Amino acid sequence: MEIAMPTDWELFLLPYKQAIDELKIKLRGMRKQFQRENLHTPIEFVTGRVKPVDSIIEKMHRRQISEDLMEQDLQDIAGLRIMCQFVEDIYQVVDLIRQRTDMEVVEERDYITNVKPSGYRSYHMVIRYPVQTVHGEKKLLAEIQIRTLSMNFWATIEHSLNYKYQGAFPDEINERLKRAAEAAFMLDQEMSAIREEIQEAQQLFSYGKGQQRHEPDQSLEQNEQRSTDHPTR
């Protein structure tokens, strides 16, 4: 099937870039509100990206998506990632997003409770977000992936290997990835078991000495493009 493409990709993707910029500000603002109230913030940091044109085209051809269905069927043209310290934080973030009135949750996929056969874990939310343009309001879809730092480490490595093997991992690599995924989740479980102790220590370190915790958003901003463009799983 021949798939028609937008003639001006920059113009087409502009609302998605605007959505990413706005959503990063709003989600990072939530983090700062927790910090201002001296509360544990479930959001460690936020990154975002607009899917590269070549990735959009490849996915449209692979899934036989026509241009008129592109914005409906490609839910991750705008993609955000929220990193959390603890698994419990993930579900708190999910609840916070559900409660917002400036975005609508249209789909949720819990790959933490329902872990993928590969070992992949993350919580995916697809939202409908209104962007104000010079031509009026445009509602578009964006995907938010919420995961712990250890889940993200595993997913980043798996994504890199996927480029080499195109998804057809040798059996040995596949088994090692599965074991690594379980080890990463065991780390999350161990950290959750001493979560209260960790949070108390972090508060003492950050506020007892009159110091702010390191704000990672700025330094990680430079790595967004290479760290957030994972294919939909």
Results as ranks from 00 to 15, higher is better:
156 T>I: 01
124 H>T: 07
211 Q>R: 13
55 S>A: 13
5 M>W: 03
21 D>L: 11
39 L>Q: 15
111 Y>H: 07
67 E>W: 12
57 I>A: 07
38 N>V: 11
121 R>A: 06
49 R>C: 05
79 G>V: 03
228 T>N: 14
146 I>C: 07
99 Q>R: 08
46 V>C: 06
39 L>G: 08
200 E>S: 15
124 H>I: 04
74 L>Y: 04
156 T>Y: 07
127 I>N: 04
36 R>D: 15
151 M>N: 11
209 K>H: 15
139 K>W: 09
166 Q>A: 10
224 E>L: 03
152 N>P: 01
13 L>A: 08
78 A>E: 02
112 I>L: 10
29 G>A: 13
18 Q>V: 11
153 F>P: 00
112 I>G: 06
54 D>V: 11
228 T>C: 15
198 I>S: 09
105 V>W: 02
97 I>Y: 01
144 I>H: 01
191 M>F: 06
232 T>D: 09
6 P>F: 15
37 E>P: 00
1 M>A: 07
169 F>P: 01
120 Y>S: 00
71 E>T: 14
186 M>E: 14
16 Y>H: 14
211 Q>A: 12
9 W>P: 04
147 R>C: 04
112 I>K: 05
61 H>N: 09
187 L>S: 00
5 M>I: 14
118 S>L: 06
126 V>E: 05
57 I>Y: 06
22 E>M: 13
212 Q>G: 05
55 S>L: 05
209 K>A: 08
230 H>I: 10
133 T>Y: 11
206 S>Q: 14
229 D>S: 04
133 T>V: 09
107 E>T: 09
215 E>H: 03
144 I>S: 03
88 E>G: 10
17 K>E: 15
